[in-house]
Design a protein around this nucleic acid. Structure first.
Length: 614
DNA sequence: GCCGTTTTCGGCCCGACTGTTTTCAGTCG
């Protein structure tokens, strides 16, 4: 069993932490961290590049991987460990890495606790803190001990991160309360939420407006520090407030004058590595970048500060969208003016995976269609569950065909209304005109509903409906919903067999991956994606964070293998159609353009790009 | 340990906050 990139990255990152505890050269530590990040971002499994037969230059081609790190990676791949790591683990204990996750605990403190009291894990630390043993150590008073005990408690209760849509919900609730203070104009979530990471460790909210100017900001800080939803106030400075929400999520609020808002937004959006690279670039130009401004070094003259665009432009770069700021080539692309035109919501024309109350959805066919029209879509497919999913009231062959007939009937009704210049499409157009939307154009084609199915892939790879039934539908999405206890090989073979069925056009949520939850099943994408590309079958990027999706890395893989990629919501209600935004963020992080997705095409072209029907 | 438009050595990003301090080290983002 070969080691995967995520594990490889984790081992390198742990080595960096051990080096920190060992008080090693900070630049050496940084290079281990950078290597870990680089490894995590790779789309090809490094285990295949680290074999004796592989081209030795392949690893060196990755930025941040030099001769030494390549040797480390080869050791990790062949032996599962590496000399430096083993040496450090002789000296320290692996449980010390967990101590570093406690708030206020850094490498120096961990090292000191180990040498003074031989404390190497959380239990021992807690016991020592309760006995008052820590008070005898330098720079450790009662206040530190109390904070540490609370930190241990929080850590035990909730050591996990928050899924992006949950975090965004919290951000909106907090923002609403902050906005009640007079003189607050803008509140922007920064950090990993703005970059569209799938999960957030904490929330960064940047606030600006007249009330944030430095001479009056104290009152606004007071307002934020006393918000009713604060569980525990963590820190409070001149223009910064940190607190925990009851769910355990940490929120950092910064109140900033308008003049430096762009610099702050840039700074706190990150990522850390992107910012480091940007500041290095600034220095080479005789400038320095901090959270207040881009300054000229010689006379501290402000070059740019109010907007991110100004800052990037002053560094001779095109504006870089937050989703790309991971120091993975975006700076070079911005310099050469070759950043991709990333997908936006307006590019998505169709959504061909959703459910109604015929199976486990909550809305009717017509309601889903009207909601899709209201969101500017041109076509959708209704794909309710098939019979194997009894608990969702899945449909047998007969019900499937009857349902298809009703879907086409609604489509015809809407088309008739459209022809008569009535109905939801014209209503939306009229609404947009009234709202004064300049780009609003008269709708020219009627909205279309496609009759589809989300057919179940059984344990042996067969489908649970007859081919004759599938042949009479417009869209067939096939997905796995049961039998997750199979091995990776079995699961891959199962889905591949289903993909051989000529009526299957789309593989629904192919990885079945659930963010921040245990994976329901493992599948070998290195086999599945090329096969899908060869068969002309589309792979779905499921937009819903709550269910399953292709992460940005898997999306890049799918593109590299030449797959047709489609982004669907798998909505079970009209509101869930908005989850397309969560899917788009991942597409953007993967550097995908509208041309990389097939449901950015008008209906006829979209249908033509699907696998041809028999 | 990495890297190169100050290149094979000598650099490598920046500031705020906290707790325990009388000037700062450590942590954090």
């Amino acid at each position: 069993m070969s080691i995967d990139n995520i594990t490889l990255a984790r081992l390198l990152d742990e080595t960096a932490s051990l080096l920190e505890i060992d008080a090693a050269d900070p630049f050496r530590i940084r290079s281990y961290r950078r290597a870990a990040e680089a490894v995590e971002q790779q789309t090809t499994p490094l285990a295949t590049l680290a074999t004796p037969e592989a081209d030795p230059k392949a690893l060196l081609a990755i930025p941040g991987i030099g001769k030494g790190m390549a040797a480390n990676i080869r050791d990790l791949v062949t032996t599962g460990t590496m000399p430096l790591r083993e040496e450090l683990l002789q000296k320290y204990r692996p449980t010390m890495l967990e101590l570093l996750r406690l708030p206020g605990m850094g490498p120096k403190t961990v090292a000191m606790l180990y040498s003074a009291l031989e404390i190497a894990d959380i239990d021992a630390l807690e016991a020592a803190a309760r006995r008052g043993d820590l008070l005898s150590l330098p720079r450790m008073g009662q206040k530190f001990t109390d904070k540490l005990l609370k930190g241990i408690e929080d850590h035990r209760r909730n050591a996990s991160r928050f899924r992006i849509d949950i975090a965004r919900g919290h951000a909106e609730r907090v923002s609403e309360l902050i906005r009640q203070f007079p003189g607050i104009d803008t509140i922007t979530p920064a950090g990993s939420l703005r970059r569209g990471r799938e999960s957030c460790g904490d929330l960064d909210l940047l606030v600006t407006g007249p009330a944030c100017e430095s001479d009056v900001v104290a009152a606004a800080v007071e307002h934020v520090a006393t918000l009713p939803l604060i569980d525990k106030l963590l820190a409070r400075g001149q223009n910064k407030v940190s607190f925990n929400l009851r769910k355990g999520l940490q929120v950092d609020v910064r109140l900033l004058p308008r003049a430096s808002y762009g610099a702050a937004l840039q700074y706190f959006t990150g990522s850390k590595h992107h910012n480091v690279a940007l500041r290095q670039r600034a220095i080479k130009r005789g400038l320095t970048l901090n959270e207040y401004a881009l300054l000229r070094l010689e006379d501290n003259q402000i070059i740019a500060a109010a907007s991110e665009e100004e800052i990037y432009n002053a560094l001779d770069l095109d504006y870089i969208p937050p989703e790309l700021r991971e120091n993975c080539g975006e700076i070079e692309a911005a310099e050469k003016h070759i950043l991709p035109r990333l997908i936006t919501r307006a590019d998505i024309r169709g959504d061909v995976h959703m459910h109604t109350h015929e199976s486990d959805g909550v809305n009717s066919i017509r309601e889903m269609a009207e909601a899709a029209i209201a969101r500017g879509l041109e076509y959708i497919a209704i794909t309710d569950h098939s019979k194997n999913l009894a608990m969702t009231n899945g449909m047998d062959d007969k019900r499937t065909l009857a349902h298809a007939q009703r879907i086409r009937q609604v489509s015809d009704e809407l088309a008739a209304e459209f022809a008569a210049k009535k109905g939801p499409q014209w209503a939306r157009y009229q609404q947009r005109l009234n709202d004064g939307e300049p780009e609003s154009v008269e709708p020219s084609v009627p909205f279309r509903l496609l009759a589809g199915i989300e057919v179940d892939i059984l344990a042996d790879g067969a489908l649970d409906l007859e081919d004759d039934t599938l042949a009479q539908l417009d869209i067939v999405v096939a997905s796995v919903h049961s039998g997750f206890n199979q091995t990776e090989e079995e699961m891959t073979a199962r889905v591949l067999r289903a993909a051989e069925n000529p009526y299957v056009q789309i593989l629904g949520h192919p990885t079945g991956r659930k963010v921040l939850k245990r994976e329901p099943y493992r599948i070998n994408l290195e086999q599945l994606l090329p096969a899908a590309a060869r068969l002309g079958i589309a792979v779905e990027h499921n937009a819903a964070p709550a269910r399953a999706d292709l992460s940005d890395i898997n999306l890049r893989k799918a593109k590299e293998f030449g797959c047709k990629i489609i982004c669907n919501t798998d909505a079970h209600s009209t509101e869930e159609l908005d989850q397309i935004d969560d899917g788009i963020v991942q597409l953007r992080r993967a550097w995908l353009t509208p041309a990389d997705l097939i449901n950015t095409q008008p209906l006829e072209a979209f249908l033509a790009s699907l696998r041809p029907r028999q």
